[in-house]
Structures are given as structure tokens and as C-alpha cells.
Amino acid sequence: MSDELKLYEVFVRSRRGLDHKHVGSLHADDPEQALEYARDVYTRRSEGVSLWVVAAGDITASQESDCDSFYDPLDDKPYRHAAMYDLPEGIDSL
């Protein structure tokens, strides 16, 4: 029988008001245990107020080969950024 445990990715919210951020991964038997180990492994120094764990196998990720078709077409749309628009002198709160 295999004794290999499953891989989980761990996300920590460091303060109220902030996003959960990926901090690393760990091995566990089930999501509940992964959550407890996440507490023991990744919040030993009060790094968090909330934890998420996700089975690594459940994450769908974009591939490097997707880069050209995913991201490049977005590079030529400067009109989405405020910096493209000039403002007259003296106007700084727009």
C-alpha cells in the first residue's frame, strides 16, 4: 500500500482586510488535517488570521504555452491605464 500523502497548497490571510496569499505547500491525509498542519507549519509566528488549503491536484493552472495567446493581446491596450491621459496643469485630483 502506498504511504504517500497528498499535496496541499496553503494560503494565509495575514491581517483582516488583506487577500489570502500563497505561502507554500505541505503533505496531509485530508483537508482537515492539512488545515491543522498549515496552522502548525505556516503560522508559528502569528503570520495569519485565516487559512485556506487546497488540494494541489484541484488547481487548474495556465501553461507557459498559453502565454502568447493569453497575455500578449492585452499589452497593446494602453487606454485601460490612467497614465495614457494627459491632464492640464493644476489638475491633480482626477
Partner: peptide
């Protein structure tokens, strides 16, 4: 028995 538990037991 494995690293995660090593850390948890020490806690």
C-alpha cells in the same frame, strides 16, 4: 512519522 507531524508534535 513525517515532517508535518514532527512540527505539530513539537508545537
Amino acid at each position: 512519522p513525517f515532517l508535518e507531524e514532527d512540527i505539530a508534535l513539537t508545537n
